[in-house]
Simulated assay, not measured.
Amino acid sequence: MSYLELAYIHLVTVVPAFLIGTYLIFTKKGTPSHKRLGRVYMILMLFSATTSLFMEAQVGSLVLGHFGFIHLLSFLTIYAVPVAYFSAKNGNIKRHKMSMVALYVGGMLVAGTFALMPGRLLHDWLFV
């Protein structure tokens, strides 16, 4: 699969994840809709992070000829989602909340900021 195809798949999963994640942050926690949307959010985030691992870094230094620093946020996502899920299942709401905040800040806000920087594909799509 080409880089461009992977980028489209990544974008199609990350945009709804961003919208759902933002909604979940500002709404009541623990409700049935929170739990349902939370599962959708987690699946979208895992799929998006996994897809991004197949995309070779286009900016900055490469590790193993493929990964860039932004890929660290994909690994954070792949770690944080199961931690958040099982923490909620086991009643450890404090750990669930910390994992979800780390996931949103790192996986959405920080990664999104990097993706919008000059030289990156999303920046070119939106601003060039």
Rank of each mutant, 00 (worst) to 15 (best):
M1P: 07
L6Q: 10
A7M: 15
T13W: 14
T13R: 13
T13P: 08
V15N: 07
V15A: 14
A17N: 01
F18S: 03
I20M: 13
G21T: 09
Y23P: 01
I25Q: 14
F26A: 11
F26C: 14
T27K: 01
T27H: 03
P32M: 09
S33N: 03
K35C: 05
K35L: 01
R36D: 10
R39Y: 15
I43L: 07
L44F: 15
L46I: 03
F47N: 13
F47Q: 12
T50I: 08
T51C: 09
L53K: 05
F54L: 10
F54I: 06
E56H: 06
E56G: 11
G60Q: 02
L62S: 03
L64Y: 07
G65M: 00
G65D: 03
H66T: 03
G68L: 06
G68T: 09
F69L: 00
H71I: 04
H71M: 04
H71R: 00
L72Y: 09
F75A: 04
F75Y: 10
T77W: 11
I78M: 11
V81K: 09
V83H: 00
A84S: 09
Y85I: 07
Y85E: 13
F86V: 07
F86Y: 05
S87F: 06
K89D: 12
I93M: 15
I93H: 08
I93R: 05
R95W: 08
H96Y: 14
K97V: 15
S99N: 01
A102N: 05
G107H: 00
M108L: 14
L109F: 07
V110K: 10
V110C: 05
A111F: 09
A111C: 05
G112T: 08
T113Y: 12
F114N: 06
A115R: 12
L116N: 06
L116D: 04
L116P: 11
M117N: 05
M117W: 10
P118N: 08
G119M: 05
R120A: 01
R120S: 02
D124I: 11
F127C: 03
V128W: 06
